[in-house]
Write a protein that binds this DNA or RNA. Structure first.
Lengths: 309, 309
DNA sequence: TCGGTTTACGAGGATCGTAATAATA
DNA sequence: TATTATTACGATCCTCGTAAACCGA
């Protein structure tokens, strides 16, 4: 059993069972990957992949179990690279952030700008996804940190730090009847077509809960994964939009009106999460500090000490 | 980075930084191991081992961190072997039990006999150690199951099943003043030199607690790791012995008297533990069932389902 | 001097790439 | 037919073992 063979299997699975594609991401030849997989399967005496003729179509039953172990091994080998890179050279390496659209679009740019200036040699990646994908990526070690709202906190393998809280804003075209309304209620929202985040998305479960508890049935005409799309449809006068407050830009969204509705929904909190029992590089800590300015160095140190290095 | 290199480092650490000894356990040559370590250190650009001249004397700071990851990788690679062996051939493989002396000596033999008859091709190993070593071995995957009293339960990575409860017996030479005593008290125990298990050992912490709470100071003249040693010294009339009830054998210990003291100490419970998130082979489950006869198949099934396979 | 580690070196294997073949959708 | 997996094959690299040199206690 060789690490390279495990890597091959790992990449083939990640590339939807396409050996050619896996070979490309590994910068090696197709036959090489194919061969290594065969060699391992022969050695362990068990087929890892289900095949339709020559095509790989999935994992076998034992293959699925083996793949779990392989994922852990790949994660730990990445961890070793991180550890050694840290001791060898402080300012080189790869840094991957998994995050949701809202963060990537409205909160990260400023921080990333500072970060890139400070660590020009770091290869920065941002993986955008929904909260459960963010969690997944942290768990698998594919991302060094994850930023999302609430969902990442549930897993006890992830260490979470609250970053900031935010409220929701209602956006509508200029001249909309609600523009003059002093105190907006859930009933108001329910009486217009509503456009908001996809229900799998951050905080929206809170939104649906609020409606349900008030026994008000909203007329959700469209859900989107990002505020830009929502605002676009609001602009077309297809309904009113419910978005995160930071997603409204007074200057850029000149044609729209935003009204605070924090009295209707509880605040949401955004967390930054890292995987427990994983080595944390200096620049990762630094990134966290940049992202959470309200945190004092003292508080951060306590967290860092907990997480050793 | 190659698996073989990680294995070399792993074995060198386990062999107290002796490359020659590691090479022997790996059935390979000394220079080969040395070379592989050098190659890895060169590749990652960090020294794993502290050296005094040519001798390896310990892990460096980054080396210690890397070693943790290596241990995980080795554990997972063993796991892969278990999974595939299970699917390939049900009745071959290696089965390691980590346990304390009392279990190994008085409870295991009968079970092991049955087990070996049923699985003659399984390579059975018993690692004897103190409870914390047992826990360690389960965690590192060096043992498939661990049997000990109480201490293994504390770690949440270990899944524990209670096996049976036991009380303590007081052993003394024939003709000892306490032989005729109807109701033995802590004061009685304290008035003679006491010989019992090493304090780090199973249940003895309970014993010391009982004495402390009763504000009685026992006169502990000797502690041993196994009941045979204790009984030997009791035979020499050096004191009275406090041992697990199953450690007394009426026939073999003809020269001694055992008196139940369950009214003085709370019962202890022995647990069998396996590591969470690790593949469990059929024969391992079977062993557990043999060890816990009071458990019905139905109950075991529930446990097995939880632990998948 | 002895136990232990590294160097040197050569044989045997393994890996990887190209090219060709086979099979699937 | 086009995409994808396997076979074939050869060059290169790597691993491993023996022998020898080297170092420390």
């Amino acid at each position: 059993m060789k690490l390279q063979q495990l890597r091959c299997i790992y990449e083939v699975v990640l590339n939807s069972f396409n050996i050619s594609s896996a070979a490309k991401t590994m910068h090696t030849s197709q036959p090489g990957v194919s061969k290594q997989i065969q060699l391992l399967e022969e050695e362990i005496g068990v087929k890892i992949f289900q095949r339709h003729g020559k095509r790989l179509v999935g994992l076998t039953d034992p293959g699925a179990k083996v793949f779990e172990s392989i994922s852990e091994i790949i994660r730990e080998s990445r961890n070793i690279k991180n550890i050694t890179a840290e001791y060898e050279n402080n300012n080189e390496g790869k840094f991957t952030i998994a995050t949701t659209h809202t963060q990537a679009r409205y909160k990260l740019p400023k921080v990333v700008e500072t970060f890139v200036k400070k660590y020009p040699k770091i290869n920065l990646n941002i993986h955008q996804g929904n909260p459960s994908q963010v969690t997944e990526q942290i768990l698998k070690g594919e991302a060094d940190v994850g930023i999302a709202t609430e969902t990442i906190g549930v897993n006890d393998k992830i260490f979470c730090i609250p970053c900031y809280s935010w409220n929701r804003s209602l956006v509508m075209p200029k001249g909309h009847p609600l523009e003059q309304e002093e105190s907006i209620t859930l009933q108001h929202l329910a009486s217009y077509p509503l456009i908001t985040y996809d229900y799998a998305f951050t905080g929206s479960t809170i939104v649906s809960k609020v409606f349900k508890e008030a026994n008000v049935e909203p007329n959700i005409m469209l859900t989107a994964i990002d505020a830009d799309v929502i605002k676009t449809y609001v602009n077309l006068d297809l309904g009113i939009g419910l978005i995160a407050e930071m997603a409204f830009d007074k200057e850029k969204d000149r044609d729209l009106i935003a009204k605070d509705v924090s009295h209707l929904f509880p605040v949401s909190t955004t967390f930054i999460g890292i995987r427990q029992d994983t080595f944390v590089r200096t620049f990762t800590c630094d990134f966290i500090r940049m992202f959470i300015p309200h945190m004092t160095d003292h508080e951060l140190k306590i967290i860092l000490q907990k997480r050793q290095i």
